[in-house]
Amino acid sequence: MDVKRWSILLLGLTLTLMLVGCASFRKKGETTRTEILAPSARMTQSPSPSEEPDFSTLSFLEMNNLYLQLLEEKQAAGGDTEKADDIYLKSLEASLAGESALADRYLQEAILLLGY
């Protein structure tokens, strides 16, 4: 094969790699997202105290609202919420660190500590 053919082949390969590289970086840089918002579920329905919570069926928002509701009820009744508060703070810190599974586990523990 002569030199010209090699050169053209090399340049063609380079251009292809450049295009692939640019496309992948553009994809990586795309951070704009638009999604249709789901209707806001402001508060979770009050659960029956005899029911064991099935956390797997609850969204984060529902669990969080459940915690806030139980906390409010226990505080109003003059109960001790310190342990639940501590665990909830751990859940918050885990959420801020992006550790969803850990955050949810602490949140569930906090709910149970409030005597659900």
């Binding site: 010209k4 090699w6 050169s7 090399l10 390969l13 590289g21 553009r26």
Partner: peptide, 20 residues
């Protein structure tokens, strides 16, 4: 000519990686 083409190809490829 071959060396020049190779150098040009490497430069373009490097630029493509770094620029984005």
């Amino acid at each position: 000519y071959l060396i020049f083409s190779f150098a040009l190809a490497v430069s373009l490829f490097s630029a493509a990686l770094v620029a984005p």
